[in-house]
């Protein structure tokens, strides 16, 4: 294995490990998020976003990394609104998402494998339907929320952090009221 592959592979191993530890390879647990009984998906996603956002912000602040050198995912509002909606329905129906379906599959779950194969078919379907979807697809814009709104980066980081903490408290209240945490 070329040395260039190693970081990607090691990061992937840690990624798969973290997802499996949190129960994200378990479709029952993911379904619990949408039945508002087990909010682990929300808690894991947003504590991960918060950790990486705050970590990136402070590492850039002390000059250890340049956040502008990190590849920023593009923005295309209409396509992401439509694609997100379709994705969300698929997420609920499958009880898994692309990354977690792979973890489910290697945990021995055949529903994970079925979702993986379905996703491959979805990619091909998208390619076949490209002529009809091209208009909706639009063009990429590379911008951050602070840039788009003309706000200081640190202020937006603070606002997202505050909103996430409020949402965590709400998630705990929902679980306390009607929770049924899924375990293997």
């Amino acid at each position: 294995m070329s040395a260039a592959w190693l970081p990607a592979f090691v990061i992937g191993v840690a990624f798969g490990w973290a997802l499996e530890r949190g129960g994200m390879g378990d479709a029952c647990k993911l379904a619990g998020q949408f039945q508002l009984r087990d909010l682990a998906v929300f808690k894991i996603m947003f504590s991960a976003v918060l950790t990486a956002m705050l970590g990136g912000f402070w590492l850039a602040r002390v000059g250890w990394i340049d956040l502008n050198a990190v590849a920023l995912p593009p923005t295309a509002p209409l396509a992401q609104l439509a694609g997100g909606a379709l994705f969300g329905v698929g997420f609920v129906v499958a009880g898994l998402c692309p990354g977690t379906s792979c973890v489910a599959a290697v945990s021995g779950r055949f529903d994970g494998l079925a979702a993986v194969l379905g996703m491959g078919a979805g990619v091909l379907l998208f390619a076949e339907a490209w002529n009809g979807l091209e208009g909706l697809y639009g063009t990429d814009r590379y911008v951050t929320i602070p840039e788009a709104l003309g706000l200081p980066y640190g202020l937006v980081v603070g606002l997202v952090t505050g909103a996430a903490l409020v949402a965590f408290a709400a998630a705990e209240r929902i679980e306390a009221r009607r929770g049924r945490v899924v375990q293997p």
């Binding site: 898994l96 979702a115 379905g118 491959g120 078919a121």
Partner: peptide, 10 residues
């Protein structure tokens, strides 16, 4: 799972 996968792929 497969149908949800197709929707997620697109």
């Amino acid at each position: 799972a497969a149908a949800g996968g197709v929707a997620m792929g697109v």
